[in-house]
Each structure stands twice: as structure tokens, then as C-alpha cells.
């Protein structure tokens, strides 16, 4: 498999997922070309996180298939080509005694493999990834003492250090202040423009991301829309009413004030995990 020759980063076909006999995702079809920056939006409980877990092979769909760079996710093994940044609060205890350098080097562990150690060139890669996100001044600082926005940059660096072709970010800006969110999106756009990394940004926050992404997909159990940002802007009103109902105005105009109502999009699926074999 040569990743460079594949036109599609992600190919989702007829994907359905149900949990306790409830349909969470219904017949999702989506082709995401390499080099795009997709904003995947949807209200809470719309199945966004579930979809991401299916893409990462953490959940197996009841029907349909997922291909990463032309390879079925069940057979995919080049996980260092995929970067994933989850909601910070989900997965990390902020008292953990680790430096920024140590956290970022974890991003290389899967690539290096068992019974091997960090070499000089790996350490250089770690430093470069930290510079990429502008955190070089904090390299030996304890991760727990950084602000939410800084921590999120460190996690991006961890995802970037293995030089991924696809980066999936699940609600990365939860708990990050509005100004940092802007800087954060600008940084993502730069990664997409300059390095051609395919990005999938999962968020409930349509307003903030729409000026950065190239494509938008709207999810609420089914895929309501998937197209480029311009087409999305033209059909926005319609789309939003279909997806959010009356909530649409609130979300569009007040999204800065309204953050906390939309946090924690866990989809109540957290108990379902891939058991390692």
C-alpha cells in the first residue's frame, strides 16, 4: 500500500451503528479526499464521537465499511499515519507528572515499536513537533501546569510527531478560551495548507470553525450535508434548521457565550471499547 497514491484519505460506505437497539448512526456515506480540512458538525448526541471511534477502529459498525487510505480499518495497521486528539478532559489526569517533551514523545512509541528506544533522531523529531505548535519554551515544564489551550497544543504536537497523513480532532477546543481557539484553528489551517495534512475537526461549534475549513459535513444520526464550505454557507439556514431545530439562531450568533451548554458530547458510548486482542 502506498499512501501517496491513494486519492482518498477516508472512505465510509453505508456505515450504521446501533447501541442497545438504538440507531446511533444510519447509513453514512462519505468520501474525504486527501488534503481536505473537514469540519464535522452536529448537535450533542448526534453520533459524532461514535463515528470517530468507528474510524479509528475502536468500535466496529453493525453494517458498512470504513477504509483508511484504501485499506479496510479492520486490516489497517499503519496507525502512526493517523493522528488523533481527543477531548483533553476525557483522557488525561492533569496532575500527572510528565514534561511536555515526555508527553510528545509518546506519539512516537507506536511507530518505534516494542523493545526499541528513543534515539537521537526521534528526540529531534519531538523537538520539531513542539516547535511546530509553538511550545518550545515549555519543553521541560510539567504538562499539568499549562493552560488548557497550551495543553491542547502539546497534544497536537504528540499527534503530529509521527508525521501523520490524517489528523482527527474530537472537540479539541472544549474548555479553551475564545482567543486561544482562534489561534488554534489558525495553526490547524497552516498545517493543512503548508503540509497537506488531511484534517477532520469534530465540533458542535459551527460558527468558529467555518472560516478555516475547506469542507463541512453535518451529522445527526444520518449525514445531512457534505460539501465544500461555500455550498454550506449558501444552504446554511436550511441545514441548521433541519439539524438543530430552533436552536440554530442561538448557536450561530452566541456561540462564544453558549459553550458550556454543548460540552461533553460523549454519546453515552464510553463503555464500549475495543478490546485489545
Amino acid at each position: 500500500m502506498d499512501i501517496k497514491k491513494q486519492p482518498l484519505a477516508l472512505n465510509i460506505q453505508h456505515l450504521s451503528f446501533s447501541y442497545h437497539n438504538q440507531n446511533v448512526l444510519e447509513d453514512i456515506n462519505m468520501q474525504i479526499p486527501k488534503g481536505s480540512f473537514l469540519g464535522l458538525v452536529g448537535p450533542n448526541g448526534s453520533g459524532k464521537s461514535t463515528l470517530v471511534k468507528c474510524l479509528l477502529g475502536l468500535l466496529s459498525p453493525n453494517a458498512g465499511s470504513v477504509q483508511l487510505f484504501g485499506v479496510d480499518v479492520k486490516k489497517f495497521n499503519r496507525w502512526s499515519d493517523i493522528g488523533f486528539v481527543s477531548q483533553k478532559a476525557n483522557s488525561f489526569n492533569s496532575g500527572f507528572p510528565a514534561t511536555v517533551f515526555e508527553v510528545v514523545s509518546m506519539g512516537l512509541y507506536g511507530k518505534i515499536g516494542l523493545f526499541r528506544f528513543l534515539k537521537k533522531k526521534h528526540k529531534q523529531q519531538v523537538r520539531e513537533a513542539i516547535e511546530q505548535v509553538g511550545m518550545e519554551d515549555y519543553i521541560d515544564d510539567n504538562i499539568g501546569q499549562l493552560s488548557g489551550g497550551q495543553q491542547q497544543r502539546v497534544f497536537i504536537a504528540r499527534a503530529l510527531v509521527s508525521n501523520p497523513s490524517l489528523l482527527i480532532l474530537d472537540e479539541p477546543t472544549v474548555g479553551v478560551d475564545a482567543k486561544s481557539v482562534k489561534n488554534f484553528y489558525t495553526m490547524l489551517k497552516k498545517l493543512n495548507d503548508e503540509q497537506g495534512i488531511t484534517l477532520i475537526l469534530v465540533t458542535h461549534d459551527i460558527g468558529a470553525m467555518s472560516e478555516y475549513v475547506t469542507d463541512v459535513a453535518c451529522l445527526n444520526k444520518c449525514l445531512h450535508f457534505h460539501g465544500n464550505t461555500n455550498t454550506f454557507e449558501e444552504n446554511k439556514e436550511e441545514m441548521m434548521t433541519a439539524m438543530y431545530g430552533h436552536e440554530v439562531n442561538l448557536l450561530e450568533h452566541n456561540h462564544d457565550h453558549d459553550h458550556h451548554h454543548h460540552h461533553h458530547d460523549h454519546d453515552d458510548q464510553d463503555g464500549v471499547r475495543r478490546e485489545e486482542g
Partner: peptide
């Protein structure tokens, strides 16, 4: 390195293929 990764962030460690 695997034990460190698992202790810090189990989900990510599993994604990156650590048993």
C-alpha cells in the same frame, strides 16, 4: 515506554497499537 503511555493516556495508547 509502553507502560508510561498506558499510564498517561490509555485510549491513545490503545489506538497506537500498544497491547
Amino acid at each position: 515506554k509502553e507502560l508510561f503511555f498506558l499510564s498517561f493516556d490509555e485510549e491513545q495508547a490503545v489506538i497506537s497499537g500498544i497491547p
